[in-house]
Nucleic acid binder design. Structure first.
Length: 241
DNA sequence: AAAGCCGCCAACCGCCGGCCC
DNA sequence: AGGGCCGGCGGTTGGCGGCTT
């Protein structure tokens, strides 16, 4: 399964791993432990790049990986985590220790996304965006006037949010709700844009988060909060959706 | 039985941040 | 300070195999 070798990059093997390669990698790591992936191929006698070895180990060879048959409980957890965290697969996988981020991502893209699309055609949508580098969360000051959110306010918030979402997206999201928005402030510096993580529209989250006196690093200027701290707080509380 | 279609998922790619020199 | 290296991440690709026609 997977890609077969289409071309050779610097003479390295590509595509599916053979049982022999798996054995070499496993035995090397069992003997020497993890570390310095760039050195692994040479020392293990593999004609692969370090990244490929790392991926193979983490997603397939390492012990305690549960494969296939995502249970209903796991599925439910993935959906809830995705609602909260967006496409942050590594964080989601962190809550399902025996699953890999790659497996969860694949399961989402092939099964859950489809299922949810059918289920939620009339419900609010989670916006799918690149969220990989999201570090901070911006609170757009609630409450907004219900359904009549003025363009000027949207413009203001767009500015606040460092132009990271289209106006239409933002408008869709904010009308009539108290919501959290996550944007990547790091990228705003680099001018790359488009890092909307998605909305968290549960009042309990807003309250829990904004009333928490400690645990977050709040930037006075843009009201940014350390996202991982927020995620951990919400995950550890029993109140998130 | 054969051909075409489609879903699954392993693996690759490019980007980014952190670390070291 | 800044350039290079490395590891980690999410997005995407494309081969395999099962299903349908």
């Amino acid at each position: 399964m997977g890609k077969s070798p289409r071309w050779s990059k610097e003479g390295l093997n590509r595509g599916a791993w053979s049982p022999h390669e798996d054995k070499l990698l496993t035995s090397y790591i069992e003997t020497h432990g993890l570390g310095k992936w760039s050195h692994v191929p040479k020392r293990a006698g593999l004609n692969r790049c370090g990244k490929s070895c790392r991926l193979r180990w983490l997603n397939y060879l390492r012990p305690n990986i549960k494969r296939g048959n995502i249970t209903l409980d796991e599925e439910e957890l993935i959906i809830r985590l995705h609602n909260l965290l967006g496409n942050r697969w590594s964080l989601i996988a962190g809550r399902l220790p025996e699953r890999t981020d790659n497996e969860i991502k694949n399961y989402w893209n092939t099964t859950l996304a489809k299922k949810l699309r059918i289920q939620s055609s009339s419900q609010s949508q989670i916006i799918q965006t690149k969220a990989s580098r999201c570090k901070n969360v911006v609170i757009l000051q609630p409450p907004y006037p219900n359904n009549n959110y003025q363009n000027s306010n949207i413009d203001r918030d767009m500015s606040l949010a460092s132009n990271h979402s289209t106006k239409a997206q933002l408008e869709d999201e904010i009308c009539g709700k108290n919501q959290l928005f996550a944007f990547n402030h790091e990228s705003s510096m680099g001018g790359k844009g488009g890092e909307h993580l998605g909305a968290i529209d549960e009042q309990v989250m807003v309250n829990e988060w904004s009333n928490t006196p400690s645990g977050f690093e709040v930037d006075d200027d843009n009201q940014a909060v350390d996202f991982d701290s927020l995620a951990l707080l919400l995950l550890d509380s029993g109140d998130w959706p």
